Simulated scan of single mutants.
Amino acid sequence: MDAPLLNYYEAIERASADMLSAARNGNWDEVVRLEGACVLLICQLKAAANQGSLAPGESTLKARIMQRILINDAEIRHLAEPWLEDLDRVLAGNTKLMH
C-alpha cells in the first residue's frame, strides 16, 4: 500500500475545506473543480481500502475527519441553495419560452 488509509481521509478533508472556502467566496467553478478532485481521492481511497485497513486507534480520528467533511458538505449545500433556486427559476422560464 502506497500511503496509510488515513492520509486519503485527510486529503479528502482538505479538499472539502477548500471547497467550502471557494463556496463562501462564490467561486463555484473552483467548487466543481475541487469536487472532481474529491471524487478521484475517494476512488483512490476505495482501492487502497481493498488492500489494507486503518491502523489501530485510527478509527476515532477517521470518525472526526468524516464528521468535519459532512459539516463542510452541509454548509456548501446551504450556500448553493440560492444559486440552485435561481437556476431552477431560469430553467423554468426557459421552458415556458419554448412552449
Rank of each mutant, 00 (worst) to 15 (best):
K96R: 14
I69F: 02
L20G: 00
R89W: 11
R64A: 13
E75C: 03
Q51S: 12
E81P: 02
L61F: 02
A74Q: 12
N7A: 11
E85T: 08
I69D: 00
E10P: 02
L61H: 08
N72A: 08
A11G: 06
A47S: 13
N94I: 12
V39R: 07
P4L: 00
L41Q: 03
H99A: 11
H99N: 12
H78N: 10
R24W: 10
A37I: 13
Q51E: 15
T60C: 11
S21K: 06
E35L: 05
L41N: 03
V90H: 10
R64I: 09
N25P: 08
T60Y: 05
L40T: 11
N7P: 06
A55G: 05
S16K: 04
C43M: 10
L5S: 00
C43Q: 10
K46C: 12
P4R: 03
A11C: 07
I42A: 14
H78F: 12
A22G: 04
S21R: 07
L84W: 07
A15Y: 05
E30D: 13
R14V: 13
C38E: 12
N25Q: 15
W28G: 04
E35W: 05
W28P: 00
V32I: 14
A47L: 10
T60A: 14
P82F: 01
S16L: 02
A23C: 04
A37E: 15
G93N: 11
V90L: 15
E35G: 09
N72T: 03
